[in-house]
Write a protein that binds this DNA or RNA. Structure first.
Lengths: 187, 187
DNA sequence: AATTAAACTAAGCGTTTGCTTAGAAAATAA
DNA sequence: TTATTTTCTAAGCAAACGCTTAGTTTAATT
């Protein structure tokens, strides 16, 4: 017995996510969100509570958007090669127009650091840990690797992803290709 | 025949730099700068023009602060080992209290991306290029390396520094040590 | 057709932002 | 001492910030 919503939450969050991805959290104002999401501030606040709530949902949407390439890694059974392919897929995934946008999670960690609110921090950390565990799984597919080596290589690859994220935003294709090739050389 | 300044520009910029380093550009307000620098807004604006001016000077101060470990790299003649030592020195350099602050230049690139003002962007790019050329110099000390390999390895190391910068802010010592050791294992 | 409850619009709330300015204080030169 | 010039204090500017709310519109239920 009431009026129906003129938007779907998942649709407007998708648009919010892209804005946050390009601009970062602080540099994205609620007025900008209004325009990009195509709904009034009232609707934003009634659906998501506050700006922070919009952001947390955006992070979740980002994760499921990344699932396309994460599943490729998950379903691969060619060890280190699958991880290398993931690095290249990520580069394609992050591409905007010529320049990359980086990883939204990495960008957020860099911007907010440890002053991110606890519920957000949980989402960010889960993301990193899930990715690392995918690396571990693929590394273990090579039976010659000791468990200790797998752990150390997983640490290496996780930090390397941070470099790729930031690199994608400021470096050219040659530099990024040299980077990835060198990472997986001799592994 | 006039009143004398009660502060030295280089002293207050040092304090401003540390604030920007911990908080980032946007999250550092002029009121915060006032308190940290210990001078009134009038003095800030008469000495540096605007907030952006304070930041540009802070970046320059950061670079000369980094000179301590950059000179060690510059004066080293043990090739790849000198670069590895630089990575460890950087980690020590960036340490705040337990957690690292990352590289101010990398943090800034991540926050502002390509919407940084031109004069600031010049400073940021010069920093990266200068560092890369130090890597090239040390790599060339090994006469067995071809010029092409040196270029590719320099690209690899530059992007790896970005990873180290972000990693220093969110990862523990074991993860970071694994990262650095693995980088130089391959070279 | 009347009722009702949620979704909409748009104006405006108090704060904070970067920055300015009028007037007082200080230090040198005459 | 007096005049001059710069620095300092502190109040205040317009604009933008995140967020709220009064009043209207819409759609399902009676």
């Amino acid at each position: 017995m009431a009026r129906t919503k003129q938007y779907k939450e998942e649709d407007v969050i998708q648009k919010a996510m892209n804005l946050f991805w390009r601009n970062g959290y602080e540099a994205t104002s609620v007025r900008m969100l209004e325009k990009e999401m195509g709904i009034n501030q009232f609707s934003i606040y009634s659906s998501f509570g506050n700006k922070h709530g919009v952001f947390v949902e955006s992070i979740k949407a980002y994760k499921s958007e990344l699932n396309s390439i994460r599943n490729i890694l998950k379903n691969s059974n060619n060890g280190i090669l699958g991880i290398k392919q993931f690095f290249y897929n990520f580069l394609e995934f992050t591409k905007d127009n010529e320049q990359g946008k980086g990883c939204l999670v990495c960008n957020t960690v860099s911007e907010l650091g440890n002053k991110a609110e606890p519920d957000l921090m949980v989402e960010l950390m889960k993301f990193t840990e899930e990715l690392r565990s995918l690396f571990v799984n693929n590394l273990k597919q090579d039976k010659l690797r000791t468990e200790d080596l797998v752990e150390r290589e997983a640490n290496y690859l996780t930090t390397s992803m941070l470099g790729l994220s930031l690199g994608s935003r400021i470096q050219n294709e040659t530099e990024l290709e040299d980077y990835i090739e060198m990472i997986f050389n001799k592994m």
